[in-house]
Simulated assay, not measured.
Amino acid sequence: MKTDEWFRLKNPEKVISPSLLVYPDRVMHNIRTMITMAGGPENLRPHIKTHKNADIIKAQLDYGINKFKCATIAEAELLAQCNAPDVLLAMQPVGANRERFINLIQKFPKTVFSTLVDNPLTVKQLGNLAAKNKLQLNLYIDLNVGMNRTGIIPDDEALKLYETISTHPHLLAVGLHAYDGHLRNPDAKIRKQNCDEAFEKVLHLKENIIKMGLAEPVIIAGGSPSFPFHCRRKNVIASPGTTLLWDAGYGDLFPEMDFLPAAVLFTRILSKPKAGILCFDLGHKSLASEMPFPRVQFLTLEHGKQLKQSEEHFMVQYDDLKVLEVGEEHYAVPMHICPTVAKYEELIVVEDGKVTGNWKVAARNQKITV
């Protein structure tokens, strides 16, 4: 195996395809890089939506990271099962998830849970549930800083909502949450400028909260694209997620970040149906399909145009079929790793070119027990 082919299996014949391979040494590199950039683990609240995996959670705990962020009740439960001390459910609980959030708190009393709200109705509903169950719920206000996906605009209405939470006997206003995933300019200077401009409104809201006589709010900010900027701010907790496994999409957009792809798709050529066409076993069921083509970055094809994807198949135009045979194995980094991981029950662990075990993607489903 060539030294630069870190991804290649020494004995691939017994590995089924498609599979998602994970490389622990690269995961650990990414964890250390996050901590170094943030100036210490205390300034981090990494998201687990990318990996949904206990082994990676425990590795972060071993490095001193004790605050985490998640998107689902199942992910929150996985964190609690790993004895994570502090867990933020970063999806406002609605419908049945409100009761599930209460059940989670009751089932895992050693973990401090919090969640997001962005409107008076949800605050009222959670307040009633907290009173009914004799609990105090920890809440962050989710702020819309330009992505227009969730959150409340950081203006007087947000200030009023924060005050409402602060005066409720069964609710605790912990702080502010600002996700700016829409800021993806590949020019780091422009991306920083955009990030700083969006964050100004958050700081202004924080100042008004303090002027009201309330405790200084904790601020959780950003995702992976804005991580290099938020991680340098004083009194701000940065919350990257994709940084744990990285992918080709972010790698191409943000080459200045020192993260390594740590998960690779293992695939084989299924067929050569006509001259110039290769078919791989990377259909929608095995590879995130919401991205435009290309959807992977092949590590073992020097060129080729990705044409089409269906449920089980992935077609690539290639002009040198003489050296490629049906059944031949190949390796590819997904352009978008997060939804790709969720398609696999387990990650195949590879160390020094050998399969050494598997890591269960335990929170890929909606529910574990709660």
Rank of each mutant, 00 (worst) to 15 (best):
N66I: 12
T3N: 12
D258I: 05
F298W: 15
P294I: 07
N138A: 15
Y318A: 00
F229H: 08
A90D: 03
L79C: 09
F199P: 04
L159V: 11
L78C: 06
L324Q: 04
E256I: 07
A248H: 04
G213C: 12
G127N: 08
I165F: 04
G213N: 11
K107L: 11
L260C: 06
I48S: 02
I48F: 05
P93A: 09
D156V: 12
K69S: 14
N365T: 08
D247E: 03
E311Y: 02
L299A: 07
K192M: 09
T115W: 07
N30I: 04
K110I: 04
K272N: 06
T340I: 09
D62Y: 03
F199E: 05
V112W: 03
Q297Y: 08
R32E: 12
H230R: 08
E351C: 11
H29M: 03
G40Y: 08
P154K: 00
V123A: 02
R232G: 06
K10Y: 04
N128M: 15
L172W: 14
L129S: 11
A263T: 11
V341S: 03
R26H: 01
A263N: 14
H47V: 15
E312N: 09
A178I: 01
E325H: 13
K272W: 10
E75K: 04
K234T: 05
K58S: 06
G283E: 00
E75A: 07
P93K: 06
K360Q: 01
L253N: 01
I209H: 08
G222L: 13
N144W: 03
M37S: 05
S17A: 10
G181C: 02
